[in-house]
């Protein structure tokens, strides 16, 4: 088997298989039957509107789900270990060790009462059992590595003394402190200014190349996807709508939701054109439709097909869709970029 861009075969670093997360009492299948994989050195985007379950899916990998939800089925294999069934101790060794994580909103994700240096050093003290002084020296190197000037001084700064971009660099420094194999980044640029966003992406790209990092990037920004990722997983209301390579998505989307998302990106250079929006909103938990979850908002919906549950189907090599009409060849969608 090859991926969309014809990459060589190999054991995936991270394989999420049939992951199902319930919100007991309100919505079974809050995230349902989610399957995808991240290979060594590849960047996979998890995209979709707010509330589609992409953040939940990424949190589930390291067992960081909020207490209200529960994983009810599936497996998450990292380097051959099922993270859903391993011991708490094993999971702790993986968190911050071979898997680093970067969160949205660096300001609230950093401890306000701990210096930046201590927060980075913490990772090495926990995993490598380094002494504080040794770990702080490493933290200083890491700060320089992520492009923070005056690292000596910044080690002793508190998060509130740094700008948003600097805070996110600190988050990244802590996430890569033990040279992870996989970096999970949950909307790492969403809370930042546009210019800073570009710098953080540039930093991530640089680290990805030099550390051969695999990246799972959660985002709702198609620009970031096009810029940074190899493969893409499009989520809608807890389902994977479509899974493919980034090029395939932009040239040949195979799900009406993906094509609607692509169409809703404002076109630069075309002033005063009408902005394409997807009518309606993502159903909230507890109100997911029984058939295709996108059906109520889909402009291509046909009652006889779309009111029934849709199966995840392979349409091309490495290209999967959860649209029955596309899978049967009944519907052909237009790409955002003409190939």
């Amino acid at each position: 088997m090859t991926t969309g861009q014809g990459q060589p075969v190999g054991e995936p670093l991270l394989a999420v298989e049939g992951l199902t997360i319930d919100l007991p009492g309100r919505q079974p299948g809050l995230v349902q039957d989610v399957t995808f994989e991240v290979r060594k050195g590849r960047a996979v985007a998890l995209i979709g509107e707010s509330g589609c379950g992409k953040t939940l899916t990424s949190m589930a990998v390291l067992g960081l789900l909020p207490p209200a939800v529960r994983v009810s089925a599936g497996a998450i294999r990292f380097d051959g270990v099922d993270l859903l069934r391993c011991s708490a101790r094993q999971l702790r060794q993986i968190r911050g060790g071979p898997v680093g994580m970067v969160f949205q909103e660096p300001m609230s994700s950093l401890n306000p009462t701990m210096t930046v240096g201590d927060q980075i050093a913490e990772v090495r003290r926990l995993h490598l059992k380094e002494r504080r002084s040794v770990a702080l020296r490493q933290a200083r190197e890491l700060l320089t590595r992520v492009g923070i000037p005056n690292a000596d001084r910044r080690l002793r700064s508190y998060p509130h003394e740094l700008s948003g971009g600097m805070q996110q660099r600190v988050m990244i420094a802590a996430a890569i402190a033990c040279e992870p194999k996989l970096l999970i980044a949950d909307e790492p640029t969403t809370a930042l200014d546009v210019t800073i966003q570009a710098e953080i992406l540039e930093l991530l790209r640089d680290l990805r190349d030099s550390l051969e990092l695999a990246v799972l990037l959660v985002t709702h920004d198609l620009g970031v996807v096009a810029d940074f990722c190899d493969d893409v997983v499009v989520m809608y209301a807890g389902h994977i709508a479509e899974r493919t390579s980034v090029d395939e998505l932009f040239y040949r989307p195979r799900h009406p939701y993906s094509s609607a998302l692509l169409a809703s990106v404002p076109q630069s250079g075309r002033a005063r054109t009408k902005l394409n929006v997807i009518a309606g909103r993502v159903p909230s938990a507890g109100q997911f439709p029984g058939g295709c979850r996108f059906e109520p908002r889909c402009e291509h919906s046909v009652e006889s097909v779309c009111r029934l549950p849709q199966a995840d189907t392979a349409v091309d090599d490495g290209h999967r869709t959860r649209c029955g009409r596309v899978a049967s060849g009944d519907l052909i969608l237009e790409g955002a970029v003409r190939g």
């Binding site: 702790r92 968190r95 969160f103 994700s109 950093l110 401890n111 926990l126 988050m171 802590a174």
Partner: peptide, 21 residues
């Protein structure tokens, strides 16, 4: 708070997590 989740994502737990974070 998100920073407690961050600390957990770094592998912190138990007494370490309680005392420092």
């Amino acid at each position: 708070r998100p920073y407690v989740r961050t600390a957990r994502a770094r592998g912190a737990s138990g007494v370490w997590l309680i005392r420092r974070h």
